[in-house]
Design a protein around this nucleic acid. Structure first.
Lengths: 208, 208
DNA sequence: GACAGCATGTAATGAGTTACATGATTAA
DNA sequence: TTAATCATGTAACTCATTACATGCTGTC
């Protein structure tokens, strides 16, 4: 028997706003959830079917020529399930930073490799931040498809932008320290790193 | 044929420091990588075998009674592979925040649910931050097992603590706004949210 | 009528998890 | 000698991905 996952509810949440075709659902999930709940397009198609098998959505198949276009609509059971999920405790945030992994093992590679890895990480985040900003700007100028949800979008984008800024700050910091720790034998802490640690322990903002 | 993943290299990086038994490897992965590369204990055991099948590590099985204890050691091929990986570009950071998902669909649930979800998220992060701090304090007072890697640990903990602080700040912000947006019809943006958006667009730090 | 791109999936595979099993070691 | 806990996995399963297939639609 199928069991719902957070991804199930992520899509159910979209269906609560309005019915979507499978294609639209995949597109909307990408546009509005990708930053903090990234899933592949193919998976959205599969998960939509699961929503039906769970009784959370109904599928209306309209034949467009030899091809069928399926439109998904949330059911009363689906609304109930969504509300129940919203009342349950969420899992803690999950973070995966490959760039940080590179830093942890930096002593096994070259300084250039490390700088390069940090740059790639920074640039990838900056690009994504820019995508988020573009979306928000669109809303502010042309209104966008769901103006009544702008406050939620603002909060989401604000968080993501702040995260991107954090990655940026941290990577610059690491790059500066990198030159020192890969050229010095015996190691120890720079005054900057020691100060960082003290701020961490004191519960203060460690960076910037 | 087996293909390496970032997780493969995460463990290989640990083996580059010194040989470990499977159990120690699992423990060390948990202690030092969990915050930004979380993997289950069972998976570490499986991945260790893969390192061997890839030729990146050798396994020495010592019989302790009826039970064998396997010790893994990095091979020259393994060191080469690790260096090659360090020279390759990393994937962008991945973020999964279920609490943010709750915020996005908050209009389908109650205000209490939302506040509760944000609290749980904040508390879970605060606890983890505290674990990181405890580790670092241990290093500062008693030295710890790898004092020569303290600068790397500092950088890692600093990042994670900053992330935890960010989640905290954002969640408080969201909680304050929550009362407003769930009680007001028609919506629109509060002056605070509008200012947030403007900072995002301007490329400034959006929060605090 | 061909070619690009929109629309809608299926198939194969794999990374990772949870739950469990079982031997060894220590403390009571 | 029981119980806890340390140590080492295996089995079963599933979430999710990548790669591919195929029909439709406008346009040159």
């Amino acid at each position: 028997m199928a069991t719902p996952t957070p991804t199930t509810y992520a899509l159910l949440g979209l269906l609560a706003v309005r019915p979507w075709s499978a294609y639209e659902l995949a597109g909307q999930a990408t546009r509005s959830l990708r930053f903090f709940w990234p899933r592949s397009e193919a998976h959205v198609y599969a998960e939509a079917k699961r929503l039906v098998s769970l009784g959370f959505a109904s599928a209306e198949a309209a034949a467009t020529g030899g091809r069928t276009r399926t439109t998904y609509t949330i059911t009363p059971d689906g609304r109930t399930a969504l509300r129940a999920w919203l009342a349950s405790p969420p899992a803690p945030p999950v973070l995966e930073v490959e760039g940080l992994l590179r830093v942890m093992f930096a002593d096994q590679g070259s300084l250039d490799d490390l700088i390069g890895a940090l740059e790639v990480t920074r640039e990838a985040m900056a690009e994504r931040r820019q995508e988020g900003v573009a979306q928000v700007e669109d809303y502010l100028t042309t209104g966008g498809p769901f103006p009544e949800r702008l406050h939620l979008i603002a909060l989401m984008t604000g968080f993501y932008a702040a995260f991107a800024d954090l990655v940026d700050t941290w990577a610059r910091y690491a790059e500066e320290e990198a030159g020192w720790w890969t050229t010095t034998e015996g190691v120890g802490l720079t005054p900057e790193l020691r100060a960082l640690l003290e701020r961490v322990v004191a519960g203060e903002p460690p960076l910037g």
